[in-house]
């Protein structure tokens, strides 16, 4: 078994397996949430709350009153830096768009690679800062479970290996590409069964909160 064969497996059957498990797990997770339903609202509603739900998704993503100082500064700044960076890298690197094109038939313009590169570095630095914060803050340390370290590593591995693959660092490209795609597959497989599902549930939770708030009160 040489690395060329490993890469072939990872790009083919391995990817199929990972995608299958990911969709399997996410379908369970989301259906469980949706089928559970909400408590019946007996009061007359002010509005349907649908628009308010979407507003809340947006407003909760912005600093309260435009002042980031009102949130824990460190987590806020690095948390945002990491998530924005990850978003750009995932969706605007040309080879990643090719994956979407092959799987879903969807494609969109890519960003120039040096721009994506900058976001990758931002993400990597932010993730390391967040880990350091987690390890040094007594409060965070108290709240941290082993799963938090696992999901950190699962997210960090594709970022770092992708960066190394692009810049041909340390190992031959064939190796780095195998590690990179393999680490993404591991992320996909464990995604539905860990806190990583927050990437989906976050929006559902915010929408519900906003919807309920929108239904309450008297129509003016």
């Amino acid at each position: 078994m040489n690395i060329e064969a490993v890469l072939l497996w990872i790009r083919g059957p391995g990817l199929g397996l990972a995608l299958g498990i990911f969709l399997f797990g996410m379908a369970i997770k989301l259906l469980e949430i949706f089928l559970l339903g909400r408590k019946k609202n007996l009061a007359a509603v002010r509005s349907s709350g649908v628009a308010a739900g979407f507003r809340t998704i947006l407003s909760r993503s912005l600093p309260p009153d435009g002042n980031i100082l009102r949130r824990p500064r460190f987590t806020f700044i690095f948390g945002y830096a990491f998530h924005i960076g990850l978003f750009v890298v995932m969706f605007f690197l040309a080879p990643h768009i090719e994956v979407s094109h092959a799987l879903l038939g969807l494609s969109w313009p890519a960003l120039p690679t040096p721009v994506v590169d900058v976001f990758t570095i931002i993400s990597i630095i932010a993730m390391m800062a967040l880990l350091w914060h987690r390890l040094t803050s007594p409060l965070l340390k108290y709240l941290t479970t082993p799963q938090d370290y696992l999901v950190w590593a699962l997210t960090f591995a594709p970022l770092l290996s992708g960066y190394m693959a692009y810049h041909h660092l340390l190992l031959p490209y064939t190796w780095l590409l195998s590690i990179h795609i393999g680490s993404v597959e591991l992320l996909l497989i464990l995604f539905p069964f860990t806190k990583l599902t927050h990437a989906f549930t976050l929006f559902i939770a915010r929408w519900y909160t906003g919807m309920m708030a929108g239904q309450k009160g008297v129509q003016s």
């Binding site: 094109h101 494609s107 969109w108 313009p109 890519a110 120039p112």
Partner: peptide, 10 residues
């Protein structure tokens, strides 16, 4: 699939 083209870089 056609894309809006990026500004050319020399």
């Amino acid at each position: 699939m056609s894309h809006p083209t990026l500004p050319a870089i020399e």
